[in-house]
Amino acid sequence: MGEPASQNATAESILSVNNIEVVYDDVILVLRGVSLEVPAGKVVTLLGPNGAGKSTTLKAISGLLATENGAVTRGSITFLGENIANRPPEDIVRRGIFQVMEGRRIIEDMTITENLRLGAFTRKDGERAIRRDIDMVFSYFPRLQERTGLSGYLSGGEQQMLAIGRAIMARPKMILLDEPSMGLSPLLVKEVFTIIEQLCQDLAITILLVEQNARMALKVASYGYVMESGKIVLDGTRDDLVNNEDVKEFYLGGDKERKSFKNLKSYKRRKRWL
């Protein structure tokens, strides 16, 4: 593989992760030299199986690693020219990176508006601007405006929309999206992804997207990385990845000849990445 991030490295990249190593509880090595580049204004996706370290990579960027007793022990994370590795999360939010965590994680015993207001916690541009942005979020997600009461009673899709809306309220330069499609119906997944694409365009928000649903992710992303057991094993533009035989087989599925269950049982990975 050599230098995994080299193809995507450009002068305009807003975030670059350089060869980071992440250790949990001082002993458990989770990321072993991960590097990636995110160009400004683009959607970049991070694919990979469970436990590959995708969420850990996002938490390393957003600083939330510290809340789980983890730390970046080697390498650097550069955002807008400054190293932000191991900075406290509130500092990173203020710098303009906002993470939407896996499983939506909205404040269930608050109303929708209260959740949105919390998203704007770090902003200092006044009540009027916040109110205007709440209306803007409602214009993206009209169904949120119709709902009243506690947000814990929202459906899974609505909660995901609220989580994304809350991120917009922070007016970040970059959003880290962790599995927005988790637990949503295919129709809702489509809706959520359409909005993600729109957001990126309308508000010039850069997005780093972690997904299990590789097909959807590669529809919106311009560039992708594939992670496995703590390492980046493959990267390339959307077209590269979509046409890559291994990605097709492991992540996209849907080959022309259908596999019978008999074959599936003995189905083994033909080739190792490295």
Binding site: S62, L64, T67, E68, P88, P89, E90, V93, R94, F98, Q99, M101, R105, I106, I107, E108, D109, M110, E114, R117, L118, G119, F121, T122, R166, A170
Partner: peptide, 22 residues
């Protein structure tokens, strides 16, 4: 603002931190 932040912290400290609350 601080009251909402306190409620958020009471509900889930990690989420509160992800929102930029100290």
């Amino acid at each position: 603002r601080m009251g909402l932040a306190m409620r958020a912290t009471a509900f889930d400290q990690q989420v509160a931190q992800s929102l930029g609350i100290s």
